[in-house]
Structure formats: structure tokens, C-alpha cells
Write a protein that binds this DNA or RNA. Structure first.
Lengths: 220, 220
DNA sequence: TAGATTGTTAATCGATTAACAATC
DNA sequence: TAGATTGTTAATCGATTAACAATC
């Protein structure tokens, strides 16, 4: 029960979901305890890093024993805010919006999608992943009645700005951004970007490097 | 024209697509030249970092002038391998597969989707984003006839392993992984993960932190 | 030429790893 | 108790920033 103050680095935070995932796997396999060493071998990171990361949030382990899988899984979930019952809305009911609405992973981790918004009359009134699709023009009113925490942006680039402004005005505090543009939001709103084409370009670079390497001295 | 050897850090690579994006924007606005300082202000990074990053690949600028936007845009594109005509295939013709097949951003950056694969007889023979959907059972044969460089994984977790093995056997050298599981691939294959639920969990943490901060001493 | 801005070296900062005493 | 493994401090490594001479 240390920390309290000391700001925790974002690189540590970004590793937590991966730990959470592996612990969930262990839990499925009915494994009760794990040492940082064993976990580090499974995950291809150093045991030191695992221990350092976890100790940012408190001493979850026990000397000579390791970590209790179920407890650690639970604790990391709490740290990540998975027990806060965050409500999400999705802007855009295209293929991507549908994919996200149907994605079981979100619900399973405690996020509840309460509305999807689009401007296409053919879609409005329909459903995606069991959630109703509303007119995006009514999003502001909807948020007044049904406060939400997280907004997911699955709209075309040109609609992004207007939708973001409306969401922020409506009290949304976090944005998951699939749009190609970077967002400009007030200080009290956080953004997490998922730039698909950035990922593909990075991959492209890496593929090219690999091919180059295997051509010349690939032996060693 | 330095480098040649000296391995370039992945953190640098991951910034290139963002530079590329901003330069494309400037190009659209018909801006001819830009200094590292101006660009740094637009992008919210330090000018020093931009210069350091670019100098990993060569001296693209000119003292007293800055960088030629068009030239730099072109050069970064080359570095990223966007002029290699990489062919991609998509596994999974669900909503996500459709979203990716329809995503103009990929084609615009020089990636060509040559096939989509699914196991659902109702989908096989159809199209997504103008590309034919084939039986995933025929993927191996397809790759023999139509070599591809990059495979995009938009299949459910349980199908992932089999699909990956088939892709690797078929000569795919890079995987864009949307699946929840981490992949186990040979040394000469690279993987770029897009874990949507990881992003959402990170966002969840950040939202929680912000809320905490605005509650207590949010004034300063 | 004078002014501007790069390319690059050196200084700082932060993140990772190693080591080990504390302790279950 | 002896063995194992944590929590934590110290050492190393890498990434970012600052500074400035080179030069367009």
C-alpha cells in the first residue's frame, strides 16, 4: 500500500492490460499461483519488470510464494477501472461501429455500450450488437438523459470534429479514436488513439527490414 | 546519407507514420517548406526530437531553410516501404474484416488487398470493399498462385492459430493482429498487434485518474 | 553578408535490468 | 529451519532534450 502519490508512467499502464490478459488465461487453466519468473517466461519480459510494474500499485505478492493468480487478476482489473461500470457510446454505425458493438471483449471487461449514433436514416432505429442506433443529431439530448463516460469514434474523418465537440459537451471523459485525425480536446478529457494505418505502415517498415536482413548476412 | 548500419529504434519508427500524416496535411494545404520548430508546435513534440528522428535516415533538411514538405513526405513514405506495392490478404469477413476491406486509408498508402477469406458459406463468393471473399480452406492454394506480403487477422480467437500457421506457410512476412491472443511466429515474420480491448482498458485507467484528479486538488 | 535552421554532440532524464536483503 | 521469491535499491541502458558549431 505504497504509492498514493508518485505519478505512474504511461508505459507501465500500457503493460497492465497484457498482464491482465495472461492472468485471465492462467485463471482459465485453473492455475492458482505464479512467480514473476514463470510469468516472465510466458510473456517474454523480465521478471524484474513485472515486479517493478506491480509494485507501483502495491505489494500483491508474497515472498517465497509468488502471486495468487486470482487475486492479482482482480487487483489489476480494479486498477484499470474495470469495476467502475463505465458506460460507452459509439459514434458511427458503419462496419467498424458494428464490429465494435458486437465485440464481446468490451462487455466482458465491464464496459456497457448504451447507444450507437449515425446520420444515415436507413440505419437509425436499427440495432447493432443488441444496441439501438440513434440519430447522431440527438446525441446531445441522449447524453443528458443517459450520461456516458467513454465515446468511441468510428466515423469518417470529416465528421470527427463535430462529433467530438458534441461528446465533450455531453460530459464524455474519454475518447477511443479510430479516426485518422488527431483530436483537440479540453484538459479534462483523455484520448486513446487507434490509428490502423499507422500500425500498417509500421508493419510495412518492419517487413521491409526483415526482408533486407534475410537477403544480406541473414546467417547470423 | 549516414546510417546504413546502426539499428534504428522502434520508438522512432512508430513516430514516422504520424510525421507522414502531418506532412500529408501540409501538402494538402499547399505548404512548401516547414522547419522542425513549426512542425514541432503543430505536433506537440520537441523540434529536437523531429530532427533526431529524421537524421536516423539521412539529412533531408537544409540549414537556414528547413525541410521541403513534398520531398520529406516522399522520403518518409519510402522509408516506411509504401512504394513496395505490398499485397495484403484479410482473414475474416465479419464486420471488422469488412471495415478493413473498405478502409480507403490502406489502398491510399500503397497496400493492395488481393483476397479475403472466411469459412462461412454464405459469405464465400461474395465481396467486401470490391475484393472477393474466398473459402479460408483454399487460402494456402491461393497464396501459392498469388503471393502476398501482409496478412490481416480479423478472425475469432479460436481460429487464429490455424490461420496464422497457414499464412506463414504461404509466405506471409507480416501480420496485423486484431485478435485477442498474442501470436507465436517464426523469426522471419513480424507482428504488429492492435488489441482493441487493451486500448479500451488503458483509456479506462486514464479516465479514472482524470476523475480522481479533478476531485481532489484539481485547481492547479 | 547576416539570419535562420539544420545536423550532431553532449547533458539530462526516464525506463529497464541486476542484485540482494527482507521475509514468507 | 532452509528455500524461494518478493519488494526495493542501485547500476545500466536507452531515449529525449539542450546546445551549438556548421552551413545554406
Amino acid at each position: 500500500m505504497r504509492n498514493m502519490n508518485k505519478k505512474i508512467s504511461l508505459v507501465v499502464i500500457r503493460r497492465l492490460p497484457r498482464y491482465y490478459r495472461y492472468l485471465g488465461e492462467l485463471l482459465n487453466q485453473n492455475i492458482k499461483r505464479i512467480s514473476s519468473k514463470e510469468l516472465s517466461e510466458k510473456m517474454n519480459v523480465t521478471a524484474s519488470q513485472i515486479r517493478q510494474d506491480l509494485n507501483c500499485f502495491g505489494g500483491f505478492g508474497q515472498q517465497g510464494y509468488g502471486y495468487n493468480v486470482e487475486e492479482l487478476y482482480y487487483e489489476i482489473g480494479t486498477i484499470l477501472g474495470l469495476r467502475n461500470g463505465y458506460k460507452t457510446i459509439i459514434a458511427g454505425a458503419g462496419y467498424l461501429g458494428h464490429a465494435l458493438a458486437n465485440y464481446a471483449g468490451f462487455e466482458k471487461r465491464g464496459f456497457k455500450t448504451i447507444g450507437i449514433f449515425d446520420s444515415d436514416p436507413a440505419k437509425i432505429g436499427g440495432q447493432a450488437g443488441g444496441v439501438t442506433i440513434y440519430n447522431v443529431a440527438d446525441m446531445g439530448d441522449f447524453l443528458k438523459e443517459n450520461p456516458a463516460d467513454i465515446g468511441i469514434l468510428a466515423v469518417p474523418k470529416m465528421s470527427t470534429k463535430a462529433v467530438v465537440d458534441e461528446m465533450v459537451k455531453g460530459g464524455i471523459k474519454g475518447l477511443l479514436n479510430f479516426s485518422y485525425v488527431d483530436l483537440d480536446v479540453p484538459d479534462d478529457v483523455v484520448v486513446e488513439n487507434v490509428h490502423l494505418s499507422d500500425s500498417l505502415m509500421t508493419l510495412s517498415y518492419l517487413v521491409r527490414e526483415k526482408k533486407k536482413m534475410s537477403k544480406d548476412g541473414g546467417g547470423l
